[in-house]
């Protein structure tokens, strides 16, 4: 089973160079039915990654560039009176896709962001009082510029919680950059990639991810991590129960990507950073990654007493 996933991952790696870890995380995030937030400066290959993922998993793909004057209807869709048929016709917004790339989501007003995040959470959209389910599977990959940039509306904490993981691609390494510069534009490759897995197969795999075994010892470890995040004072606010569930889900998916049918503490440790990066704020005001590392080091893997 995981061989197909493995094939898909290597296919994406051939387009997005030198970012194997991030690609695996992104795939794991998808398998865990989670939405992904990528925080990065423009031009780091976010779009390419999203596009490549969509191609490889043969998903219906849309991209929306968020701006400050966007309205919720711009994403969800709108009923428009058609003079020809003299009827209201629904124009589905871009949200009706299997993989939606929401570019620079922090440029939109909180209202518009709220509409998107609500759709992500409920996996359905209510228009003119009628609920319409979103397609299955449904993923959102949102990108965000670092908050230091002017004129943005940072996502509120409560809504950040809706993303399973936050990753950032970062600058490529020197070798990768060389390869990148010498080769032709990788983005074109994305559009010509052939699908590795059908969306139906993907759904099947997601089903299996849910069955990955998490033992009592492992759940205990996760619980102690959560408890420590709340008690230690490392963070302004500790991890929520929802974050805990997400952590376990992500760890299951990561174990699945690694070809195992049970979760080990390593899986938890790998996904802990991406899962918690956007949810907690270090009380020292520094980078949350440092505090996450501190959290990891403070909690023993095996209960000691």
């Amino acid at each position: 089973m995981s061989t197909t996933i493995g094939r898909a991952i290597s296919a994406v790696s051939s387009v997005v160079l030198g970012k194997d870890e991030q690609i695996r995380l992104a795939v794991a995030c998808m398998l865990a039915r989670g939405h992904l937030l990528i925080e990065d400066l423009p031009g780091m290959g976010k779009t390419t990654l999203a596009h490549a993922l969509a191609r490889v998993f043969s998903l219906d793909y849309r991209r929306v560039q968020f701006t400050s004057d966007m309205l919720p209807a711009d994403i969800l869709g709108v009923s428009i009176y058609d003079p020809d048929t003299r009827q209201f016709q629904l124009r589905q917004g871009p949200v009706f896709a299997q993989l939606l790339l929401a570019d620079e989501v922090n440029r939109a007003t909180p209202k518009t962001q709220g509409a998107l995040l609500e759709a992500m959470e409920e996996r359905q959209v209510t228009l003119d009082g009628v609920s319409r389910p979103l397609p299955e599977p449904f993923f959102v990959i949102a990108t965000q510029n670092p908050v230091t940039q002017a004129g943005t509306f940072p996502l509120p904490e409560s809504q950040l919680d809706r993303f399973l993981m936050r990753i950032s691609l970062g600058y490529p390494s020197a070798e990768t950059e060389l390869a990148l510069l010498s080769g032709s534009d990788r983005r074109d490759h994305a559009s010509t990639m052939k699908p590795e897995i059908s969306s139906a197969e993907l759904m099947q795999q997601m089903e299996l991810v849910g069955k990955v075994h998490a033992s009592a010892d492992l759940i205990d470890y996760v619980q102690r991590l959560l408890a420590h995040s709340r008690d230690s004072g490392l963070f302004v606010v500790g991890l929520s129960p929802r974050a805990g569930l997400g952590l376990l889900r992500a760890a299951r998916a990561w174990a699945f990507v690694a070809g195992r049918d049970y979760v080990t503490p390593e899986d938890v440790q790998v996904v802990l950073g991406p899962v918690t990066a956007h949810r907690i704020q270090a009380s020292t005001g520094g980078a949350s990654a440092t505090s996450t590392q501190q959290l990891l080091e403070a909690v023993p893997v095996v209960r000691r007493s």
Binding site: T264, E266, Q269, P300, V301
Partner: peptide, 9 residues
């Protein structure tokens, strides 16, 4: 050894 190391580590 530190307590946070997994068995593999």
């Amino acid at each position: 050894l530190a307590p946070h190391l997994t068995s593999a580590q």
